[in-house]
Every structure is written in structure tokens, then in C-alpha cells.
Design a protein around this nucleic acid. Sequence first.
DNA 1: GCCCAGGTGAAGC
DNA 2: GCTTCACATGGG
Length: 294
Amino acid sequence: METTRTFAVRDYNLAATLTCGQAFRWHWRDQCWAGVIGTHCVRLREAPSSITAETAEPVANWNWLTHYLQLHLDLSEVVRAFPDDEPMRAAVAACRGLRLLRQDPWECLASFILSSTKQIVQIRQIIARLCERYGEPLAVAPGWPPAFRFPSPARLADASETELRRCKMGFRAPYLLATARVIADGQFDLARLQTLPVEAARVELMKLPGVGRKVADCVLLFAYGFQSAFPVDVWVMKALRQLYFLRRRVHLQRLHRFAATHFGPCAGYAQQYLFHYIRTGRSPLAPPGAPRRR
DNA sequence: GCCCAGGTGAAGC
DNA sequence: GCTTCACATGGG
């Protein structure tokens, strides 16, 4: 039992991984990345070839952390599977060490239901309010600020739409509430999706209120680890159009077909590199106002 | 004021 | 089938 453990890593860019828009609860505080994984309040410190974790309470088994961070994964194999073209080379060079996490399905699902037409900053604020108001308080170390579990489906199912709207989630409130209720009632089994082929799991997810193709793909990729899932949002759409389709108008369906054939077995990983690349001011497509590297 | 944000669902052709 | 629109909220 210990509260600190250091893990040797290679090619792990923790900052990019925790801020690239796949998870929304990490904060930079006291030279550490502070966050909550399940019931564990944790701080992560990045060094050139290691990651040191500190928890609020002693830990006997660290599997929850190594699984979440996917520490066993050999990133070079993933990158080798990418297509050898100029956009991918640039994206990989711009965010070397970027990883996909393996998140809890419910937290991931609820988070991305709340994500539609919201900027990442705002998604983070909504989720923070949701956890403060509905999540169970967690044990924290002396000097750490209060921390909360992500609220369970049952807890949110007991709330009213009006209450949820006070977290500033707007029109997403009825979606989150309805989905929480279906899951809390046992009518929908998130765990079962892990046993299905990706296409079948997607069909199931899209039966949930507020879950369309894009949100479903995010959950398939970020929570279940289906690496062929390729979420296409406005940014990925822009990137694919400009980098691969000569700025022509392209239908979403065609982009999905292109993604399935062009990016290989780790298409979802490639998607995250492209997404982060265009959003962080390191590409010609950077958003206005984004920090631009020389 | 305007436009846009890791979209979805429903209504209108 | 496809296209258009409403839906809250806040940042730039």
C-alpha cells in the first residue's frame, strides 16, 4: 500500500493526452495534472521517461491507473499503422506522444452527450458543475481542493430537467436525463457493448437519446477502445476537407468511408492526432486566436 | 450585435 | 432519401 508510484514510460505526452479533448476533468495545479479516475483522486507528474502518480489514499493495486493511461501500449506500433502521407506526418510531429485514454463508459457517454455545439472550455465547466452538485465527495490529501466522483446514472436519473439545466447544459439536459434513466432502470447495459463488434455497439449507443454518430464514435473510441471508430466533428471535417479533399464540399458519409479505408486499423488514433493538430495552432487550419507556434 | 462551438432530432421537402 | 432548423450558453 502506498500513495505514490512511478511508472516508466516511453513516448508519453501526458499534457497533450489530458488536454486534447477526450477527457474533461483534468486540471493543471501545483505543477501536476490533478484529476479523478473512478473513485481515485490522483495527481500526475510528468518526467522525460516516467509518470509519477500520487493518490489521496493508499493504493494496493494500480491497475485502474495503468489501464486508464494505457501505459502498456506501444505507441510506435500505432504510429507505424498510420498512412505515410504529409498531413499525418505533420500531425504526428506536432503532438508526439499523444495517447488515447481508456475511460469509464458512463462518464465518457454523459460527457459527450453534453459536448454538442459547445467549446471544450465550456464542456469542462458544465461537467465540473455536474460533479460538484451530484457527485459523491472523494477523500483528498491535505491541501488538495475538494474532489467529486462523476455522478452515477441513478443519481442523475433522480434529478429533474430543471435542476440539470442549472448546470448550464441547456438543451442537452433532457438528453442526459433520459439516457441516465434508461441506464439506471437497467434497460440499457453499457458493459455488454464491450462484447459486441464495433458496428453493433454503435447501433446500440445510437439508440440512446442525444447520441448520434459522432457521440457514439467518441464513446466507442475513448471508453471501449474500438480503434476503428473515427469521430467526425466540425474540426475533423474541416481538416479532412482541406488536407485530403482540396477544400471541396464532402458529405459526412463519404468522409466516414474515406476514414475507414485511408487511415488503417488505428484510424481513431489518427483522428485524435489530426484533431489536436488543427486545434492547437500548429497547422495552417488553426482557429483564429489559437496560439501559433513559429 | 454577430458567428461559432468535439451535434442531435424532428420537420420539411 | 436529403436538407434545414431549433435547441441554450458563453467566448471571441
